[in-house]
Each structure stands twice: as structure tokens, then as C-alpha cells.
Amino acid sequence: MNGEKSYRRELKKAAIGIIAILPMMLGIVGLVGIFRAFVSREMLAAVFTGNVVSDTLAGTVAGMIAVGQAIVSYILGGELLEQGISLYAVAAFVLSWVTLGVVQLPLEAEVLGLRFTILRNTLAFVFTILTAVAAVWSAQWLQ
């Protein structure tokens, strides 16, 4: 398709890009392992106090620190709801779990720049709270 390009060469360039960040990626994977082994579900649930406002903020922060598959956050969120935690807090927790990540911040800053990383994550933090609250309001309004 393109005379000057070879697919193999382009693959090699892409692979080199991944290989170059392997140390950073291995470090993040290592932190994920530490988090999962040392921070239990009970410890995460303990940050909620019953106050909707502070719980929503706590949910955002807990989700930001937590790592793992999104499905785990849904299951954990379902358990929190059963324990009487407000849907606002659970929604913020589930959403920040997948949109924010303290563990991956060093790699994001290294690859995309510190300024962009701070801006993106600050916006994501604010919008996670707003989105969670708006979704709960809308769902309650419909019901």
C-alpha cells in the first residue's frame, strides 16, 4: 500500500515503544500486586462513614487508590450498597476506579507530560463526582 513502509518495520517500531516503558510498567504491576495483597475489601469499606457528602468524596478517593478489573469494583460496589452505603458514594467509587489511578500516574506523566497529567486527572476527579451525583439524581428522578 505504501512503497516506503514495511508492516514489519512499523511493528518493530511499535514494539520498541512498548519495550522502552517496560521498567515503568513492571513497577506499576508490582504496585498493583502490593495493593491487592495488603489492602483488603474490608479496609476499603471502612472509609465510609454514612455521611453522603463525605462518603461521595471518600468513594472517589478510594476508587482512585484502588486497582483491579472494573468488574471487581461493580461487585464491591454491590456489597457496599448492601451494607447501607449511599449510592452516591458507591457510584463515585465505581467510576473513579476506572477513570483515575494513583498507581499509574508516574507512567502517565512520563509518557504524556506532567502538565497534561495533572490537568487530565484533576478534571477526571471533579467530573467523577459530578457524573456520579448526576447519574444517581437522574436514576432516582426516573424511578
Binding site: 461493580y74 460496589g77 477513570t99 426516573l142
Partner: peptide, 27 residues
């Protein structure tokens, strides 16, 4: 791109199961 990744299409049925379809839809 990064924020839209929060919509996990294959996991939507699970979210509906735990949180109900109105919440899942609006979220």
C-alpha cells in the same frame, strides 16, 4: 478517550444487575 474508557460495554449487564438499568443508562 481516557474518560470514555469508563463505559465498559461487555460489563453493562453486570452493572445493571447490581445498580439497575436507569442508573446504568444515565451513568
Amino acid at each position: 478517550f481516557f474518560y470514555a474508557r469508563a463505559v465498559k460495554v461487555p460489563l453493562l449487564p453486570i452493572m445493571v444487575h447490581y445498580f439497575g438499568w436507569p442508573f446504568t443508562l444515565f451513568l
